[in-house]
Amino acid sequence: MSAPIIRVEELTVSLNTDDHQRNIIDSISFDMFPKEIMGLVGESGSGKTMTALSIMQLLPKTIKICGGSIWYEDKDLLKMTSREIRTIRGNKIAMIFQNPRMALNPLMRVGDQIARAVCLHCEVSSEKSKSMAVELMSQVGIPDAESRARSYPHQLSGGMAQRVLIAMMLACKPKLLIADEPTTGLDVTIQAQIFKLIKEIQSEIGVAVLLITHDFGVVSEVCDRVGVMYAGQIMEISSVIDVFTNPKHPYTQRLLKSILRVDRKSDLDTNKALSPISAVFDSPGCRFASQCDCVRPECLWERPKIYTDSPGHSVYCFNYSRDNK
């Protein structure tokens, strides 16, 4: 594979509450390569969205990055000034969100919102940007784009709004598109359409996609690779085929087993087979240890080292480290 476009290295993000500091993302590392679709799965609160927001530098005020680096084209995004990061956002790295209708400014015509994105990063006249906006809208499958461009967000359905957002984010042909649960709140049939659109765009303009979801079914259909997160730590990263046929980490195994048990219903949020993430955030070791069937003593106080099974399949678990084999 070619060089990664994004390299996340030992990223640590913390939430400062009244009493203490809690690392909601604990030293995670992963790479993303051009033109791939990578999934990031995990339960609610496992830190998927925060990882995405860290890349975008859009974390809420109470949450701070306190370690690590995020490399984009030899530059560390975390060391950039806010002016520099603005030339990256929307231009090189774009992001679409859940609840698309809320993510559009209610007082601006959607065409103008897309045109603005065009104007911000490409040097074109406002006339040109408006016609480009209409073009983008028809490109993402909005029928009758010319007149739709003059609508306001409240006149659009959720699916349409998400298409508008995608069009807005594609305005300057970014290298990486982050999609944070882009179909939450949409009908099932619309969900399929949106994922289809994302795949089409990915192959058409060659953008890499980081897809954040809690739905393994979506991962199996859409993604090339997948990272499994639990309580702010990455447990396992591998190709989608490997994760389904040969899951290594006890957490991944448990996840997949629970999916099979409830028969195709793969939504982790409604999954009762796993205890919810609770106070495991303060553990110095593997955060899954307290729930793990194959827990070892060292799991409780030491972070597991990365173990690479085959190229592109990494597991963070002591059960696989060399001396325990």
């Binding site: 975008m56 030339t87 809320m102 993510a103 559009l104 209610p106 911000l120 990063h121 984010m169």
Partner: peptide
Amino acid sequence: NADYIRTAKAIGVPPTKLLFKDGLLN
């Protein structure tokens, strides 16, 4: 704190515009 402000940030709208155009109108 609204989602659409986050969207505007995500496409790189500078803070002054964010505050006085998107923000103030809403």
